[in-house]
């Protein structure tokens, strides 16, 4: 699975939403499924799927699907 698909899958698993809703403009708390609780599950899912460690500043910064990709790129993941 290429990394963009992997990222969509991580969001789908963590937030429990349909994959076609997962686009760059999907933002934190814009839908009921992406609340503070599921945000923690999402962080854990991303760490597990991409084998990275996301530090607190980035946990807070990860405010959209687009931002998630940017943070993963910063952590050495290629898209």
């Amino acid at each position: 699975m290429e990394n963009n698909q992997k990222l969509v899958h991580a969001f789908h698993e963590a937030l429990g939403i349909d994959s076609n809703l997962i686009k760059d403009n999907l933002t934190y708390q814009s839908i009921p499924e992406w609340d503070s609780i599921s945000h923690m599950i999402l962080i854990s899912q991303l760490e597990e799927d991409f084998n990275v460690s996301i530090e607190t500043d980035d946990v807070i910064d990860l405010s959209s699907f687009k931002k998630a990709r940017e943070i993963l790129i910063k952590l050495g993941i290629n898209f």
Partner: peptide, 8 residues
């Protein structure tokens, strides 16, 4: 820091 471990 422990929370992320617990989520796993």
């Amino acid at each position: 820091n422990a929370i992320k471990h617990f989520l796993r």
